[in-house]
Amino acid sequence: MAPHERKTRLSDLALLGVVLALTALGGCRSQKQRTVNLVGSTSVQPFAELLAQEYQSRHPELNVEVQGGGSTAGIQALENGIAEIGMSSRSLTEAEKAKGLVPIAIARDGLAIVVHPSNGVTGLSRQQIQSIFSGLITNWRQVGGSDMPIRPITREEGSGTREEFIKRVMGKVRVSRGALVQESNGAVKELVRGDPGAIGYMSLGLVGGELKVLAVDGVEPSVEGIAQGKYPLAREFLFVRHGELSSDAQAFVDFVLSDDAQHLLESEGLVRTK
């Protein structure tokens, strides 16, 4: 009795193994669908994902694969040939352009300076923001708010959002070591939502309704402000190509720049390219 039982169990196990192996191998052999790979900025990713889905509902024969990792990772993936299109939330450096990388602007976005809804401050100058993030100003009282320590939240080294922020606000001044570091727009948002003393920066398109967005240098980060070029912390979301695109990738890029897609991005809180 007992040996019988064992035998069945062993053979079941063997069967399971074989099935798994076949699935894996079968997977390897199944002919690959035509795929366009996008890798890069986590700020651009949600929008690219949306565009990919919309595109696929119209052209089911093409597989558009979107991955995060960050702007710089996307550019590397482009150079290594892992990705065909890179996504970046910062502009390309001269060195990157010299390597033959070409930016394609797909939309404009603002860097929103966000604080807790209970915060009495409604706007800051770029100078003030710089002093807050470098640790010179440490209390909300110093910028017209209530007596409460300021807790700046920054993004991790290498993030495109951080690089744009550094370029437009910090300049050569270092971000204070005491600033909290979070690795995504969402994490910054969550933290600011829960902490009355917090201040952070994130993609305007992803802010939603729960945070207070500050005016910068007196300009509200509205769609008009960005479109007219008045808001000082506006930036472009880029697709990046290295050499010529395949016809599939080109078709996708054409779709992204089309009126329909631009309209879609607008409804998600971004500003169209032109």
Binding site: G27, G68, G69
Partner: peptide, 14 residues
């Protein structure tokens, strides 16, 4: 393994 949202069709997909 990456973070692609799509269905992996083979062992070499993310």
């Amino acid at each position: 393994a990456g973070s692609a949202l799509r269905m992996p069709h083979s062992a070499l997909d993310s």
